[in-house]
Amino acid sequence: MSGINIHGIWAIYSSEMARTRRTVLQSIATPVITTALYFIVFGGAIGSRMQHVGGVGYGAFIVPGLIMLSLLTQSISNASVGIYFPKFTGTMFEILSAPLNAIEAVIAYVGAAATKSVIIGLIILATSTFFTDVRILHPVWMVGFLLMTSIAFSLFGFIIGIWAKSFEQLSIIPSLIVTPLTFLGGAFYSIDMLPPAWRTVSLFNPVVYLVSGFRWSFYGLGDVGVAASLGFTAGFMALCLAILWWIFQTGWRLKP
């Protein structure tokens, strides 16, 4: 075997993708239906009474936020379940005893989780065009943010999956931290619409930077500068990588 265990990466990646196919209803249909409901409720019912935000119709305005909402939750849940499941069933021994280094394991698991998130993001984007006019001013940036966010939060999910000792712990961070931050992160509104004090508070919410940068790639308008968005996403990714490096160095919660 040469330097990289390509077959090993592929084995994990493809089995993770196969797991997605086995649960296609839960994996793909649920986010699509949820998104359609958001469009009907926020875009249709409420949005028709809302003024345009920065020259963009409200229905179109929430598209980037909705995609981001799904990217974050899906990336975390895919990646965390992906690595928690072998721990739970005991099949982790095989991964640990394989000729696979930490980087390869992360590429395989996080790559599969991020792939799934990107697919879901694109499906939601396609779904949204049935409800509203979507323009994408900076398609390359859009794809860039889509990829970076999916990877960064899949890394985050991977860490949660290694950390979690129960199914409850597995869902606690997504439901208690990530979902509230996303709702408060400007997915459904511009933080400019908030009173100044709350706007300042919002700037401490990391999701604001993600949604803002992503929305900028669509409509050229954001709550914070695109550089700040990019910097934040890259910084978060680097932090997750550093934590993972430490985990694999010490075998924390992987090896006794």
């Binding site: 077959h7 090993g8 592929w10 084995a11 089995s15 797991r19 086995r22 394989a98």
Partner: peptide, 24 residues
Amino acid sequence: PQEIAVDIFTTVWNTVSFSRGLFG
């Protein structure tokens, strides 16, 4: 290993092929 630990939702062929790939 001493304990039986398998992904119960996968097939015999797939899980054995998976192991081969995993080991490079």
